[in-house]
Write a protein that binds this DNA or RNA. Structure first.
Lengths: 201, 201, 201, 201
DNA sequence: CATTAATCGAGACGGTACGTCCAGTCTTTAA
DNA sequence: TTAAAGACTGGACGTACCGTCTCGATTAATG
């Protein structure tokens, strides 16, 4: 049933998200003001505040609506390989300018409990669910053991990626991802009759 | 060499750090203003800026000077056990109100490159050096293998702790630490003649 | 020539004027928003702007259409007495909540030349014309001299009323009106027996 | 006794007043924003709000501190002549760009009771006191009668000037002032030889 | 009677100014 | 010279309102 009054402008909505995404990815969250986003989107500031409660919420939505599925699990012959490729996708995503969005949102979430909840519920947990599904599939395929705590394993796998993104202690390159994946395998791979030496650099 | 004029107040310096620590630990970085810290410390705002360049630097120093060694490696029979206990110390530290300092500084560092560098050079890397020394000791003791990339291993070990601190996806409890430690062992422990079953919840 | 389409709602027109009059008289021009008038009148904001160009125009019309003739010259035995009574009517009008409309419009007219012109052409000058007619009648009746500048005399008569309305330097009570009327008489009344030099252009 | 802390900047204070005066006199109250005044004065907006509660208060002070005595009673041989000249001064003041300040303040005062009180207490009443002193002097000099209500007489004298300033019904030229002055004389001048019934309270 | 076209209530829109807040700097007097 | 106190510039914030625009629904006069 249609509501009365002028409907919200879909084009304004999208223009705001695109401007926010572009500006924040390029210059960072704090360096971009609401006035600037509004001007860039050709929109009144009140329109932004009518759609979102604050800057963080705008950026949160621009992440979800515009680039939400860049890190989806890719097709591969089996679950384990799909997981491996997704880790590389995630690293590439973090290395790109999009990584600024994640850094900004995690940063703001430290002083904004509502944003923290939103980030978890709308970004983190859905992606963790995907990972969990993938791991369960790998278990069913017989590639992984079935006696470990999946949530803990996920934290170990992805924790190091977020760590390098946020702390900058090292580069998120291919080798690092490969090592992390292998370390995960070492701990959780199903035991075969024969077993080789695990590896790392 | 005798200085002219009124000497700097050492008590002011400490009062500022204590106020900053207390207020930021309780209410968070963003919610605390410089005026408030100055007032709480019974000090003029200029005195703060004469000692530190900005708010983040004050909090950085309050972390280092007041509670810097709460996570030092404890004595234990061997290097591995010392590492295990340190992981538990670090988790306790993160769970306490002090965790707010780390969260605040990492958060601010996302938009302040100088702070990012300072945080790495003065907090992160010294502690990583300790971990590295410990791991090398464990290698020498024959408890760990000697063919892995230590920096990557450190990221895997501590990344999940920072992840839970900053993302709030799960509790930093004893079990989580124990699992993380075991997963590290699984991947890096020296192969003995006999081997037990690794574990997890 | 018949117009096409839905005709303008006369009831909406009147409801708007009544709401504007009531709200502005009670709370003042600036304190009342167009949204509020629209809501009070049970009308869409666009309907107001389809009938009038801006808020001042609405209030201007509410003054003219609803209470325009409260200060008309009353019947009396002669022109002078009619003038005297009209001055008292005008004072009563200014003292009432209707005075707020005049104050509001004069106030807005200071920064809105179009409104200033409209206020003069539609409110001020018609009433000055009435006064002028009355004075001319009094001259014809032999009660007033015929050698003074009528416009200047009107400004002197009514200027003090507007002055007290807008500046609030004193009350617009009966005595003040009576004194003002007498001062006018002193200067412009026809000489009964002997008289000295008249004055003015 | 000197207070502690940095004292308010006298130069900033004056720069603000001068900018406000210049801009408002030229373009009018509503057309000038606080940001603009701040920028023109080379001052932060907070400094303005630290010295005054709102724009009207700034303009009020710029009127009083910068051009307050342009309408002071000039020296003349006698009180009546001084009054006559002051009327001409006042008219010239109203005709000049300074008249915009008076118009602005009276306009804003219609919706700002505090400003209304301030305008009366700080601008209007002091000047009325001067007029009252002058009239009393003229009475003592024997030029004016002593049996009329002075406040009413002042309203009649100056009311017409404010009326033409605010309503724009006619020009504030020399002739108008002269007529107004003569009308005042007619009603209040002391009778030279023979005299009939006086008038008014 | 169906069509047409301007109106209606509702409310989102672009734009502009407001008044508040805080970071980091500067300027006093006192010690 | 340094201290406490607090005023300073600069700039972002979130709110309010104006006057315009856009919906779906209504309402005469026209065809």
């Amino acid at each position: 049933m249609g509501t009365i009054g002028r409907p919200r402008s879909k084009s304004a909505h999208e223009a705001i998200l695109k401007s926010a995404l572009r500006l924040v990815a390029k210059r960072g969250f704090r360096a971009v003001s609401m006035n600037e986003i509004a001007a860039d989107a050709g929109v009144g500031k009140m329109t932004i505040y009518r759609h979102w409660p604050n800057k963080a919420a705008v950026v949160m939505d621009s992440l979800l609506e515009l680039i939400g599925n860049e890190t989806a699990f890719p097709e591969a012959g089996n679950a384990l390989e799909s997981l491996r490729r997704q880790l590389h996708l995630q690293a590439a995503f973090f290395r790109s300018s999009r990584g600024n969005l994640i850094r900004s949102l995690v940063s703001e979430a430290q002083s904004d409990p509502e944003l923290a909840t939103a980030f978890r519920d709308r970004w983190l947990y859905p992606r963790r669910d995907d990972v969990r599904q993938n791991i369960k599939a790998a278990i069913l395929e017989g590639s992984l053991r079935d006696d470990f705590n999946i949530d803990t394993a996920i934290d170990q796998l992805y924790g190091s990626l977020y760590y390098r993104l946020l702390l900058g202690s090292g580069v998120l390159n291919e080798q690092f991802i490969e090592d992390t994946y292998q370390q995960f395998l070492t701990g959780h791979q199903a035991r075969l009759a024969v077993r080789k030496t695990p590896k790392s650099a």
